[in-house]
Design a protein around this nucleic acid. Structure first.
Lengths: 149, 149
DNA sequence: TTTGCATACTTAGCATAGCTAATCATTAGC
DNA sequence: GCTAATGATTAGCTATGCTAAGTATGCAAA
């Protein structure tokens, strides 16, 4: 009986987390227009800013798009001076995409605007509630990061 | 001193929640290709399935797109038999978009695939951790829902 | 070595999804 | 009843997704 209740709770928590993730990002996304670049460019640029230089194929895989799509996104970012596309000396077929200072600045500012908006929302909570969210977020990080590696 | 620590923690929690929301949705999104419709159509259809009938302008506002964009998305959904577009008898300029059975089925199945994937990830956690996530998710719901109303 | 296949990326061409400007129909205000 | 405001659509542009095909490089086996 206890097992069954546990399983029901697990499903309920999954549904709730999924729904909250959608609503949370829908809310903070409002700030993104200030970046002046589209969502695909912003997302790809974020990956190189926070995750360091990547090859085009790596970037496509992380972003869950096909290489031709990422090729064009990178082309646009290069044209805007937000990333560099450099040859890989170990394998000249491959290109290494890294962020410029301008690209890094845009992403950090954009991320900051999103986080400020979220933090403002959270600031209506009391200390116990914040602690609870912090603990939950740590648990979630562990599960989600494990999935990517 | 305690106040300062509290503020730092708040920011840290905000950053962490934001990052987790991104990674969570990036992960579950993998299941969406099975729906057979694009992300804009899926998202708009979800709104009418879970939120009931909406006018086109309401739908555009919820989805954070302009009316012409939503008009075309709805046109595609109508063509696929996933929503109905009916006249509003109170205001004949307005159209009411509601889901068909087919549309409702597609969204419920898609949502279920996403949730199953998330629940599988969560199932590696122990009961205390699930309880912690559940509590946090409730807190988050309260803050996020308040934002929309 | 060279022949041939695999790999990394790009190019070309198509579909979807975002926008603004302009249009049409209806409603609301005077 | 005029006029302005509102809800939706149409037209035409850009951005972003795809597959198929092309180019350049790397690797392996004859």
């Amino acid at each position: 009986m206890k097992r069954k209740l546990g399983e029901l709770r697990l499903e309920e928590v999954g549904r709730s987390l999924h729904s909250n993730a959608i609503h949370l990002l829908r809310d903070v996304r409002i700030e993104d227009s200030a970046m002046g670049i589209g969502p695909a460019q912003a997302s790809a640029l974020s990956v190189v800013v926070f995750g360091g230089p990547h090859s085009l194929n790596e970037l496509a895989e992380v972003e869950q798009v096909r290489p031709p799509t990422m090729s064009r996104v990178v082309e646009a970012l290069v044209g805007e001076g937000l990333v560099r596309r450099e040859a890989n000396s170990n394998d000249r077929r491959s290109v290494i995409i890294s962020s410029t200072e301008k690209g890094t600045k845009i992403i950090h500012e954009g991320r900051s605007r999103r986080e400020k908006r979220l933090i403002k929302l959270l600031s209506q909570l009391d200390a116990d509630e914040i602690r609870c969210l912090g603990k939950a977020s740590e648990i979630l990080s562990r599960v989600l990061v494990a999935e990517h590696s």
